[in-house]
């Protein structure tokens, strides 16, 4: 099937192709990795002493200090849009204030904003982390 003159047409994208391939920093927050998760960390705020060990050991970061501006102890919440469920936070917590809870099928990708299941990342570029050179 021929589409005539359309053969040389450049598709449109939802984002700019910046000359030289630069991009504004921090844009990856739009990319959600919650569907990688099999277990979710749940913080027991009664046990949490605000030491921030979970925060400094989180590879994402998906641990959010409740007091982001201050310098005192701060309890934390989990960014469920980005947490991949590795379980390091539960492992390093000195007061065992974080439990890893299995995600339930159907609800397991729920975001921190509510129970709406988030899509598997916002783009169609796939979520495979094992990109080879």
């Amino acid at each position: 099937m021929s589409d005539g003159a359309g053969v040389g047409r450049r598709p449109t994208l939802a984002f700019p192709i910046n000359p030289g391939g630069w991009y504004e920093g921090g844009s990856s927050v739009e990319y959600h990795t919650n569907d990688w998760r099999l277990e979710r960390p749940v913080v027991n705020l009664d046990k949490c002493v605000g030491c921030l060990y979970c925060w400094i050991y989180c590879p994402e970061p998906a641990i959010v200090p409740l007091d982001r501006e201050g310098r005192g102890p701060s309890k934390v919440k989990v960014d469920y849009d980005h947490c991949k469920g590795c379980g390091i936070c539960a492992q390093v917590c000195p007061t065992k204030a974080i439990d890893m809870v299995p995600e339930e099928v159907g609800a397991r990708w729920g975001s921190s904003r509510g129970s709406t299941p988030a899509s598997a990342g916002h783009s169609s570029r796939g979520t495979t982390p094992w990109l080879t050179l």
């Binding site: 927050v29 739009e30 980005h82």
Partner: peptide, 9 residues
């Protein structure tokens, strides 16, 4: 920022 594609952990 989060949203990178490093393996969990």
């Amino acid at each position: 920022a989060p949203g990178h594609r490093a393996c969990a952990g």
